[in-house]
Amino acid sequence: MSQFYQIHLKQKLDRFLRQPFQKPFWGIVCLILLFSISFVSVNAAQPLRQPPLWQIYQQSFKNAKYVDLTHTIAPTIPVWSGFGSSKFAPAINPKTGEPYIYQKDGFEATHYDLSTDQLGTQLDPPAHWNPDYPAIDELPATFAVRPLVIIPIQDKVALDPNYHLSVKDIQDWERKHGRIPQGSVVFVRSDWSKAWPNPELATRTKFPGVKLEALKFLHLERQILFHGHEPLDTDSTPTLEGEAWLLQNGYAQAEGVANLDQVPETGALISIGYPKFKGGLGGYARYIAICPPNWKYGVRVGQIPESPLLKADKPLHWDTKLGVRVR
């Protein structure tokens, strides 16, 4: 309400109260009404402040750069021979025995015959090796977003394909960037994933990893949430000693991560998603790095159409030879 109308209302109220036939009660009512209207008008003029987390989204997350650290799951991606291969097929109508098709049914769906939950980019719950610890559906929701640390060892791996992250590598990183944050996720960049999806990757006995001493340092000294690596195993020792120590002692880990060359070593966050299979001993994971706005890689919110999503130039169709839908 403007000051003019407030003065006008007050003048009318004064004249009203000076009339002898009016009872004091009505004067009090009008006075309360005047102040109530004034209070509401003043507050209505003030814009509502967004809740704090919404402010953080508008100020930080909306302008951040997003980088996908996840491999696409397909029947031919690298997988341990002990699990075997997976198959995709069109979903079948059990009543007719025929696949659903767009032209007749208005939709299509896919049947997945997955040989294992240890496939592609993963989040390993400790129950994978120890049934006394949580399965994938029992991991806490607090895994959702964490600070992301990238420790590079790709130059050393280029000289020694079997190079494993050491405590010294971690300490060298900290001398440059500062102490690794408690509760963070630490990914080890080796560039092993640049050969993905060559199935031969799964047969290599020499590959970059993480030493047991480094894992203990990260968890016991720095109290990280979990670490991640590009290969499909933690280390190349005969007994997988690093992976065994982690999972048998209640720690999770990420495997098969990708695109770590597109993420800054410090200053990013990571979004962690995975399906909740009941009693699952592995997790098909989706990792997204949330990088600073001025980072050279990634996409911003609104940079590409999101709602509705962009219509493709070519429609999806089933490729019998490849065993997947392609464009």
Rank of each mutant, 00 (worst) to 15 (best):
K10F: 15
Q11L: 15
Q11A: 14
F16N: 02
Q19S: 15
F21E: 15
F25T: 09
C30K: 11
I32G: 14
L33W: 04
L34W: 10
S36W: 10
S36G: 07
I37C: 09
A44I: 02
Q46D: 09
P47A: 05
L48F: 11
P51W: 00
W54F: 08
A64N: 06
I73S: 11
A74M: 13
I77Y: 06
I77T: 00
N93Q: 03
P94R: 03
K95V: 05
I101Q: 12
D105S: 08
G106Y: 05
E108V: 15
A109L: 07
Y112G: 01
D113P: 05
S115A: 15
S115V: 11
T116V: 05
D117Y: 12
P126R: 06
Y133G: 03
P134Y: 04
I136M: 01
I136S: 00
L139S: 01
L139A: 03
L148K: 01
Q154S: 14
D160E: 03
S166L: 10
K168N: 15
K176H: 14
H177F: 15
Q182E: 15
S184E: 03
V185M: 06
R189L: 11
D191R: 00
D191T: 03
P197T: 07
T203L: 12
T205Y: 11
K206E: 12
G209E: 02
L212Q: 03
E213G: 05
E213P: 04
L215T: 06
K216P: 05
F217G: 02
L218I: 00
H219K: 04
E221V: 04
I224P: 00
I224G: 05
F226S: 03
E230R: 08
L232C: 09
D233R: 15
T234A: 10
S236N: 15
P238A: 08
E243K: 06
W245H: 02
L247W: 13
L247S: 10
Q253G: 10
Q253F: 10
G256V: 13
L260M: 12
D261S: 14
P264W: 05
I270H: 09
I272P: 00
I272T: 12
I272G: 03
G273R: 13
K278N: 14
G280H: 06
L281Q: 12
G282L: 05
G282S: 03
R286A: 15
Y297P: 01
G298M: 07
V299K: 13
G302C: 03
G302W: 11
Q303M: 12
I304H: 13
K314R: 13
G323E: 06
G323C: 01
